[in-house]
Amino acid sequence: MQPYTQNWTHITEFVMVGFAGVCETRLLFFILFLAMYLFTLVENLAIILVVSLDNQLRRPMYFFLTHLSCLEIGYTSVTVPKMLAGFIGVDGGKSISYAGCLSQLFIFTFLGATECFLLAAMAYDRYVAICMPLRYGALVSWGTCIRLAGACWMVGFLIPILPTYLMSQLIFCGPNVIDHFFCDASPLLALSCSDVTLKETIDFLVSLAVLLASSAVISVSYGNIIWTLLHIRSAAERRKAFSTCVAHLTVVSLFYGTLFFMYVRTKVASSINFNKVVSVFYSIVTPMLNPLIYSLRNKEVKGALSRAFFLKPWKGQ
């Protein structure tokens, strides 16, 4: 941070470096990320369509799964198309306006926070289903599901308001080159001429609060699930009950592992290239893997997909 003088020109747009070190293979990376993006869209749209049309999947667990797929589509679409435009060098592909950059940051944070709370709601659903099966219909009614999903989206929307407002109050006077493939908070703070201490602290506290609150619900839910499973005498019943949680646990591990690494820290400066790799993982790779994890680990989803696309139902259905 440098002392601000009135002679500096305020930045009106940013230029995103993206993956500058892959100039010779940028076409290959463009094809790779485009394929991953299209695959992510197809997978998640298929999940939404199948759950909406198949009566056998009209249950809370799959209701939350459709919301998860909507989130995956949303926050890949807010970053990947701009990144792809930068790879092929179309006009304005690497540049983004100041307002557009803040909007991208807001939407990405909003969708990421919403996913944290949605994964917590899904953990609660599994807890009630396994630990209190006789009360499941009363505790996880359709009204409750709608309220939980609505709360996840609403709180997720509120989370980035203060951090984005504080970002808008910072002065950016040059250079305007963001060493990232989207407008994330850390590379933006590195460009600011203002004192970023308050902004950095608020970002840390907000990220920590979101991750701790949602992960606490998940931890308590699975702690109770494990305790209940240990008291089930039949090993076959234990395996059957826990198998309904494997996909969710896998998604949670992938998502939270990268988020804790990226956002629960106060230093702006770190290994930028390594940060990009981690960002690719949680913003592109994880949304592509999640539908596969749920469909490959879930016989009901596999059966519904086969019925939807006029294929012979898979074995085990």
Rank of each mutant, 00 (worst) to 15 (best):
M167G: 14
L205Q: 07
V90Q: 09
S77H: 08
P291H: 04
K82M: 14
V17W: 07
G174C: 03
T144G: 03
L205C: 14
I284K: 08
L254I: 02
M288S: 11
Y136N: 00
A185F: 10
F19H: 13
V285G: 03
C245D: 04
F108Q: 13
V220E: 01
I130N: 01
I218K: 05
A190K: 11
R58K: 13
P133V: 00
E24M: 06
R26V: 01
G143V: 03
T258V: 12
V42D: 04
P3S: 00
L188W: 14
V217N: 02
K82C: 08
Y37Q: 00
V15N: 12
L296R: 09
V246H: 11
S207L: 10
V22Q: 09
L65K: 06
T5V: 08
A213P: 02
L57E: 05
L111P: 06
E200H: 08
V268M: 07
T286C: 15
Y282V: 14
G93W: 07
K94T: 13
C173E: 07
P187H: 07
S295Y: 10
A46L: 05
G86K: 02
Q317F: 14
Q169H: 09
A151V: 12
F310C: 13
M36G: 05
L84F: 04
C152S: 07
Y62E: 06
L119W: 00
S207D: 10
S69F: 03
C131R: 00
K276H: 11
L105N: 15
V80E: 04
S215P: 01
C152I: 04
T250R: 05
F108T: 14
V50L: 07
L27D: 06
K276F: 08
I47M: 14
M61V: 13
V252Y: 00
W8G: 13
L259Y: 10
A185P: 15
T9G: 01
G86T: 03
T114W: 00
S207H: 12
V128A: 02
G156L: 01
T286F: 15
L305C: 06
N176S: 14
Q6W: 08
F29W: 15
Q56Y: 04
A304H: 02
L53E: 10
I226A: 00
A236H: 14
K312R: 12
R297E: 10
